[in-house]
């Protein structure tokens, strides 16, 4: 009995603080924001919670729907690019020799340990008009021009720097760069668990590498692919800093609009409603994942 009592005490001691922390700093504020979404501004600072659905109705204005749609498109494109780039990377790490593997995983995770703001500013340095990308292109352009002159051709016209920054292209590049590890790690976990003899069996039965990839590896790694897609898509959909710093006037995403409601527009109830619409979209994505991986054990074995 004493032991049981002791373990019960230990249970509460370990469970209570984090629960309180989550309640006070996450659930309650979230509840307040949720409540705000059913209210309207009163005076300069007050919010009256009246149970109105006006904010949600306003969110379905074509102006905001378009930004929602655009955010989903940008996040979707980001996720697709991450998958296309991340799958071969994960596969390469799984098949790398054992000494190299931890190093390669470290390289994937390294950017995580650098501040997002710093990484984003570094991308600005790469993409801006006089940035490293344009500088490199200009170098090749000028070399080409010199070479052309040498063989007696007309030298090229002066190099026109590409507009790489402050547009949708820059936003997608930034989002792919930031979110790639989110895709690679779950893919790596899923592929690493895969019994290598299944791939060997496929080769042995006459399948080429590509056929083996699509008939055996991809279907068996599906839980990892779905996890990677969700884990990449959700934060990409709510991206704020990347479109803010790298985007142009037409590349704002839904998070930028929400920020504006809370700050410059001082319309907290509408900002709250937009926030919750974003959360519902996230829930839908997670529910979709649960649906797609239903009936499978969590570890991805024995599908």
């Amino acid at each position: 009995m004493a032991l049981e009592k002791q373990s019960r005490a230990a249970f509460w001691v370990t469970v209570l603080p984090p629960t309180l922390w989550i309640a006070v700093f996450f659930l309650i504020p979230l509840g307040i924001v949720w409540a705000y979404s059913f209210g309207h501004n009163e005076g300069l600072t007050g919010v009256a919670i009246t149970g109105t659905f006006d904010n949600y109705i306003r969110a379905f204005d074509p102006l905001y729907l378009q930004i929602f749609g655009k955010s989903i498109a940008v996040a979707g494109l980001t996720t697709l690019l991450c998958l296309i780039i991340g799958f071969p990377v994960a596969l390469a790490i799984v098949f790398a020799n054992e000494k190299m593997r931890p190093l390669l995983l470290l390289l994937v995770m390294l950017p995580f340990w650098t501040n997002l703001l710093i990484r984003t500013y570094a991308l600005i340095a790469v993409l801006r008009t006089e940035g490293f990308a344009n500088w490199t292109l200009a170098w090749f352009w000028n070399q080409g021009s010199t070479l052309a002159a040498l063989v007696g051709l007309q030298p090229f016209p002066a190099y026109q720097p590409l507009e790489l920054l402050y547009n949708n292209f820059a936003v997608v590049v930034g989002l792919v760069y930031v979110h790639l590890p989110f895709m690679v790690l779950p893919l790596y976990a899923a592929l690493d668990r895969l019994d290598k003899s299944l791939m060997e069996a496929s080769l042995d039965l006459g399948a080429g590498h590509l056929r083996t990839l699509f008939s055996i590896v991809v279907p068996l790694a599906l839980p990892g692919i779905v996890s990677g897609v969700i884990i990449t898509f959700v934060p990409a959909l709510g991206a704020y800093l990347t479109p803010d710093l790298l985007g142009g006037t037409d590349s704002q995403m839904i998070a930028n609009v929400i920020e504006r409601q809370f700050k410059r527009a001082n319309d907290w109830p509408f900002g709250a409603a937009l926030s919750f619409l974003l959360m519902y979209a996230t829930f839908a994505a997670i529910a979709l994942r649960a649906y797609l991986t239903r009936g499978q054990p969590a570890d991805g074995h024995g599908i």
Partner: peptide, 20 residues
Amino acid sequence: TPPNKRPVNMVFQSYAVFPH
């Protein structure tokens, strides 16, 4: 010659039956 072009087939120790 790669495995998929050889006139032999193998029964693996783990059987490697495709689970899906």
